[in-house]
C-alpha cells in the first residue's frame, strides 16, 4: 500500500468510529432524553422514568464513556496504521 492509501484507510477507520460514537451520542441525549422519553415512560426509576434519568444523569455518563473509548480506540488505530507520534 502506498502512503496515500494507508492514510485513506486510517481516515476511513476514524470516520467509522466517529459516526458510531455520534449515533450513540444522539440516541442517549436527543433520543432517550427528549424525543423517545414518552416511549420509555413505563420504565420507572426513582420516582420518575428512565428518560428523565437519561436527561439529567445518563447522557453525561455515556458522553464520558464515549470520549474515553474513542481516545483509546484512536490511539490503537494510530499505531496500527503507523501514524502515531514519534
Amino acid at each position: 500500500m502506498s502512503d496515500k492509501d494507508k492514510a485513506l484507510a486510517y481516515w476511513k477507520a476514524n470516520l467509522r468510529l466517529i459516526v458510531i460514537s455520534l449515533i450513540i451520542w444522539t440516541i442517549v441525549s436527543f433520543g432517550f432524553g427528549i424525543v423517545l422519553r414518552p416511549l420509555l415512560s413505563g420504565i420507572a426509576v426513582g420516582g420518575t422514568d428512565l428518560g428523565f434519568w437519561f436527561a439529567q444523569q445518563g447522557s453525561i455518563l455515556v458522553f464520558l464513556a464515549l470520549i474515553f473509548i474513542y481516545a483509546w480506540r484512536m490511539n490503537a488505530l494510530d499505531r496500527a496504521h503507523g501514524v502515531e507520534e514519534e
Binding site: 460514537s21 455520534l22 451520542w25 441525549s29 458522553f63 470520549i67 481516545a71
Partner: peptide, 8 residues
Amino acid sequence: GGYVLLAL
C-alpha cells in the same frame, strides 16, 4: 455533550 464533539 459539546465535549464529545470537541474530542471527536
